[in-house]
Amino acid sequence: MNLLTEPIGISHYLAVGAVMFVAGAVCMATKRNALGILMGIELVLNGANVNFVAFSSEYLRSGPRASLGLDGQLIALFVIVLAAAEAAVALAIALNFYNNHATIDVDRADDLKG
């Protein structure tokens, strides 16, 4: 198979989404900086968004009937908006945490430890 000459399919978009998703997940797991975790979440959301857009696209499939149609794009829009909201709140929480604990290391935030 030659990637340059063949058309692109949903699979390829999904692969990109998967890489971004996993990168986000690993980011969440390995960053001790609260903002790093936030960025990981953004990556995860984006990975999901790529999938939505891919499914809604009519260019990546053999026939238009198969695609998700506008629903995918609309959901992607909602995700973007909600991500913005989430970012705002999370940032606020992070700043608050920073103000209270004078650190941004989430490993110090283990008050819920069982």
């Binding site: 969440m28 975790i37 935030a109 069982g114």
Partner: peptide
Amino acid sequence: FRRLQTGSVRQYAMFVV
């Protein structure tokens, strides 16, 4: 089971994955 509750956000994320 108590030991699972580490309170670490990052580990929870890992558990989910």
